[in-house]
Simulated scan of single mutants.
Amino acid sequence: MNDTSMDMDQRYRAMLMQRTGEERLILGCAMRDTARALVEASLSARDPQATVETIRKGLFLRFYGHEFDHETRAKILAAIESAVLPMPG
């Protein structure tokens, strides 16, 4: 879906390109962090008792699950489940 006029889209892009590469990287990282937080909140809201592994598997599936075939996806999910590491905070 694109509800932005071409003129406004071009103006926005020009404003972004005026920023330094470092500023654009910081913006991109902030957007990624926000997206992750939203997905984590969604997963936790759906299952308040969700484990760290459940949240990690949900994050993987939301962001990258569609990029892998069933067999590869299953291997990655199994690896996530077996890796007992604390969630980054």
Rank of each mutant, 00 (worst) to 15 (best):
M1Q: 08
M1R: 08
N2A: 12
D3G: 12
S5W: 10
S5T: 15
M6A: 15
D7P: 01
D7L: 10
D9S: 12
R11V: 03
R11D: 01
Y12E: 08
Y12W: 12
Y12F: 10
A14K: 01
M15P: 00
M15W: 05
M15G: 07
L16K: 07
L16D: 06
L16S: 07
M17E: 15
M17G: 03
M17Q: 14
Q18G: 04
R19H: 11
R19V: 03
R19G: 07
E23K: 05
E23C: 08
E23Q: 15
L27Y: 06
G28Q: 04
G28M: 07
C29I: 11
C29L: 15
C29A: 15
A30I: 14
A30M: 15
R32W: 10
T34K: 09
R36K: 15
A37Y: 01
A37H: 01
L38H: 13
V39M: 02
A41F: 01
L43M: 05
S44V: 09
S44M: 12
A45L: 09
A45Y: 06
R46D: 14
D47Q: 04
P48I: 01
P48T: 04
A50Q: 01
A50W: 00
V52F: 07
V52L: 07
V52T: 13
T54H: 12
T54K: 02
T54E: 11
K57I: 06
G58S: 03
L59V: 02
L61N: 01
L61Q: 04
R62D: 07
H66T: 02
E67P: 04
F68W: 08
D69R: 00
H70L: 06
E71K: 09
E71A: 14
A74C: 06
A74R: 14
A74N: 14
K75Y: 05
L77S: 00
A78K: 14
A78G: 09
I80V: 13
I80M: 06
S82M: 15
A83F: 02
M87N: 09
M87V: 07
G89D: 15
